[in-house]
Design a protein around this nucleic acid. Structure first.
Length: 154
DNA sequence: GCCAACGTTGGC
DNA sequence: GCCAACGTTGGC
């Protein structure tokens, strides 16, 4: 099993929104960055995702989701009314992908970015070193460390 | 709301 | 292929 971190602005879509969604699942739509897209395409069913709240006060990891369905073409790229529309994407070779994720759990308390930055064991996290990447890999030990900081067991 | 960091676009 | 201009992300 692999581990990832996925970002969402809680004002747009929070972990509570995921927990309330039908089937507690959602399409992880709108990724329009190639590195993030490649990470989506590398996800496998059952992989775990840290659900990160960005542009929040404070920002931080709010809980855990799981990959339910592996990457397939993001339908919004072909919808001219969508804000995710990409007129340059060819339907025969779609440029953008998404995965479906499902809610696993919400942490009792957010693991804030400040906490993560202050933790020597998390100094190499992509989050700390490339804060703009919206879908990023997380190592096994980083994942377990964030769970520990959240007061959770594996 | 500001602005640094970063990715993308397009002229040449 | 270089790089300046521009747009976006996201912390603060």
């Amino acid at each position: 099993m692999a581990f990832w971190l996925i970002k969402s602005e809680p004002g747009v879509f929070s972990i509570d929104d995921l927990a309330r969604a039908p089937g507690r699942r959602t399409q992880w739509e709108g990724v329009r960055n190639y590195q993030a897209r490649n990470n989506l395409r590398a996800m496998r069913k059952g992989d775990r995702c840290l659900f990160y709240h960005s542009n929040a006060s404070p920002s931080g990891v709010a809980g855990v989701a799981a990959v339910l369905r592996e990457a397939y073409p993001d339908p919004h790229q072909f919808d001219s009314k969508s804000k995710y529309h990409d007129p340059k994407s060819d339907p025969r070779d779609p440029r953008w992908s998404l995965v479906d994720v499902k809610f696993l759990r919400r942490f009792p308390a957010l693991v804030s970015l400040e906490t993560i930055k202050a933790d020597p064991k998390l100094a190499k996290m992509v989050l700390v070193n490339n804060s703009r990447l919206s879908v990023q890999p997380v190592t096994d030990s980083e994942f377990r460390r964030v769970l520990a900081l959240a007061g959770e067991k594996d």
